[in-house]
Simulated scan of single mutants.
Amino acid sequence: MKTKAEKRAEAKAAKARARAAEKRRRALTVAGAAVVVIALVVGLIVWIGNSTSSTPAASPAATATADAPTASAAEATSAAFPPVPEGADPALSTKPEAKAGSGEVTELTTTTLIEGTGPAVESGQTVTVNYVGVTYADGEEFDSSWSRSETFDFQVGAGNVIQGWDKGLAGVKVGSRVQLDIPADQAYGENPTGGQPAGALRFIVDVLAAS
């Protein structure tokens, strides 16, 4: 039979073992929690890395798109037509209406609709123009630089255009809008080939530059 001293010793030892066991349990709990936290942090870092690499801003295609002209830039480019000279009448920014004429066109006639303030065009110069062309008899439009949103350049007097243009635009001031009534013999003739209009023609021409 155990003495009281032995019983007290055993009780103390049991308490010591219990305290040790509790410490180990707590240590394992803390360690386990730390592992979970570390795993979560690592997982979060990996997820952020993957998310960043898949965003449009990091892809080559997105970079190329960012360097491309924006819609507003394209609209600005389109809005630059026509290139009206500085100080010219704002009406040159609007397409004119060319109507049919009356009577017979027997000679070339240049009628100034808007007089510009720039220098007069000389033979041999290259001019930049906007124009609308209609048949004189019925006013049917057959050509227009406005419909292409593109001006037309040519050398005055070089024979690269019809005579009515070579002769009718010489002396016209830059910034002017003129009406050219051109007889058939200074246009494409009465029986042209290649789809050109026959007979007398009427052009409304804006002279935008000369050099």
Rank of each mutant, 00 (worst) to 15 (best):
A76F: 09
G87I: 03
E141R: 06
A64R: 05
A137V: 12
A62D: 04
T117S: 10
T112A: 09
S123M: 11
S102H: 06
V121A: 11
G133D: 10
P56F: 09
Y136D: 03
F142S: 07
P96F: 10
A100N: 09
E97H: 13
T109P: 10
Q125Y: 08
T77I: 15
S123G: 12
V129F: 05
W146L: 02
A88D: 02
Y136M: 01
P85A: 00
S123D: 15
S59N: 12
V121D: 14
G124K: 10
A100H: 06
I114R: 06
T65M: 14
V132Q: 01
A74R: 15
A61K: 08
T70K: 08
T110Q: 03
E150W: 11
L92I: 01
A137R: 12
E150T: 13
T126W: 08
A68T: 11
P119S: 12
E104P: 10
V132R: 03
T65I: 12
A68K: 11
T65Q: 11
D89L: 10
L108C: 06
L92K: 03
L108P: 01
A76P: 09
T111R: 00
F142I: 01
S59I: 15
T106C: 13
Y131C: 05
A98R: 03
P96V: 05
G87D: 03
S102Q: 02
A64V: 05
A61N: 11
G101F: 03
P119G: 02
P85R: 02
A62T: 02
A80G: 03
A79S: 07
P82V: 14
F142A: 09
T63G: 15
T135M: 01
S102D: 12
T128Y: 05
P119H: 06
T109M: 14
A57T: 11
V127C: 10
A71W: 11
S59F: 11
A100R: 04
T126Y: 10
V127M: 11
E140L: 08
E140V: 03
D138C: 01
T55N: 11
S93Q: 01
F142C: 04
V127E: 07
V129D: 08
T111K: 07
